[in-house]
Amino acid sequence: MLTITDLRKVYPTGDEALKGVSMRVSGDEVVSVIGPSGAGKSTLISCINRLTEPTDGSIVLDDTKITSLSKRDLRRSRREMGMIFQEFNLIERLTVMENVLSGRLGYMSNWKAFRRKFDAEDISKAYEILDRVGLEDVEDKRVDELSGGQRQRVGIARAVLQRPKILLVDEPTSSLDPETSAAVMELLTEIAREEEIPVVINIHEVDLALEHTDRVVGLTDGRIVFDGPPGELDDGARDTIYRGGEPRAKAGERTTSTESVEIEPEGSF
């Protein structure tokens, strides 16, 4: 279970990205964080494993208070949080297998890591996960030979191989085409069920969020303004998230980025 309490982040430039965010994620629920650009979605995700250092507030994963860990203990805790990145962030010049196995680096001695001496158990698990995400027989390819969708699957496999307690997913689909995006979201939700871990997905495509996640958190200007099941996200709630409360009629033509909102997913209402 992940508990975030009153999380704040002020960047050195003075930008206040998070102005007191509190939320709780548990079980195997898939939570999407939606909101306009600059609302603090990415900051929130990367504060959880402290790739971005929060300014104030606390983050607790199970019994561990992430926000007060020393560097060394933080590394230990990061092993238990799988992260999936917008730009995939794979080691481009290494093979698919090395990338997936790099999910175990936190458990290996430097000497073993240097010699690429991975445990047999991890290797067999890696093969299993590669099959699971639909990447058979590409383990010896270099990542820079793969397509975007394949790369994101490698990214997912790397995170799953960590056997994490939670998956943190930062804009997994914004570098992908719509069809691949849906497949990746599908895969993420299935993995949450199979591994019985919660998943936090920060995503800007609202229909994908509604279709694939159990719970939607709306973030605007560093604050949570909506938190509930997809069915509750009505027009009023959307206006609150994307237009700061202005009703749609007045702001109708102001933004094109929310056009997709109008296409309702089937069966949600």
Partner: peptide, 29 residues
Amino acid sequence: DPGQVAAIRAVGGSPFDVVVYGIVPQVKP
């Protein structure tokens, strides 16, 4: 690319792992 470095940090890699997996493959060529 700092993203590749961030990824190794995110899996809990040591500074040594960051160099060997995150930086060396990138600067080797």
